[in-house]
Design a protein around this nucleic acid. Structure first.
Ligand code: SF4
Ligand code: SF4
Lengths: 138, 138
DNA sequence: TCAATTAAAGATAAATAGAGTCTTTAATAT
DNA sequence: ATATTAAAGACTCTATTTATCTTTAATTGA
């Protein structure tokens, strides 16, 4: 059981788009080159992010992707759900009345998800920028 | 990303062995029949649990599996690690200095694992037995 | 209008992991 | 010795993940 690579790519892509803070959209070529991925593959990931409303795409010349308006609220969980889907890690097909095992597994998973929901992309973008500024100012 | 079915089987198997509280070992046939699995398949799961020290096996006539001596300390996490392995859900091959993304993912995962470590199998076995007693006493 | 650019969608293929079976080997009790 | 039981290995089947290639649709700007 692992997060897919796509989730990793999606998180890095989101951060990169957010740091590209001049309103210009970023093209898939640039985003793919940065992560050494094929543009067509990353394109599928970007399409998922677009459908989830986390980024907005414009086709055509000067088109590309930019972060959605709700930029300041996007959490890690939002990105993960967009790529991995919104299902539970532990699913039992039976669902007995008052099941104790599933309860425990769900509670634990919720703890992880809550942390992922509380962590916003914008926070780590800011931290990364501060760090960079710190280095530059020396 | 999902827990494997094997993890579900392992949890149920552990609970069943623990409830079989007369010191007799339980055979794989019984455990497999209960969950409608093939004995050879469940056998692989049981071997993993044995290698992790959660249960003890004895071959031969009247052999089978019984819970390990540290019965009262076995957590959900112990069982899950035995089946899924002890790796992280999110792994980045690069490991940049002061990586922010991996930090967040790890912290969230640790929250899940902590909950799974705090929940002991013996607790839910007791709860299940209390519930059954309640029903029988009516 | 037309050509260049860019995202979206679909078909397909390769690689990996998960689920499961079958057969052989080793250990144990009677 | 023989029956019984776990362990191990080879193997198959299926689903998912990763990835590529091709076609279609939308947009800009000359
Ligand atoms: S007890 Fe819970 S997890 Fe187990 S089979 Fe019933 S519903 Fe599923
Ligand atoms: S920033 Fe962290 S997660 Fe991203 S590539 Fe570097 S080490 Fe990996």
């Amino acid at each position: 059981m692992k997060y897919s690579n796509a989730t990793n790519y999606a998180l890095h892509t989101m951060v990169h788009i957010m740091r590209q803070s001049n309103g210009e959209p970023v093209g898939v070529q640039e985003l793919a080159a940065m992560q050494k991925l094929s543009p067509t593959y990353l394109s599928k990931i970007l399409t998922k992010l677009t459908k989830s409303g986390l980024i907005e795409s414009t086709p055509g010349v000067k088109g590309g992707y930019k972060i959605s308006r709700k930029q300041k609220e996007i959490s890690f969980l939002d990105v993960i759900k967009s790529i991995e889907g919104d299902t539970n890690l532990f699913e039992c097909s039976i669902h007995h009345e008052g099941c104790l095992i599933e309860n425990v597994m769900r509670q634990a998973e919720d703890n992880m998800k809550q942390e992922l929901e509380n962590k916003l992309l914008i926070d780590i973008v800011r931290m990364a920028e501060e760090k960079q500024t710190g280095i530059q100012s020396q």
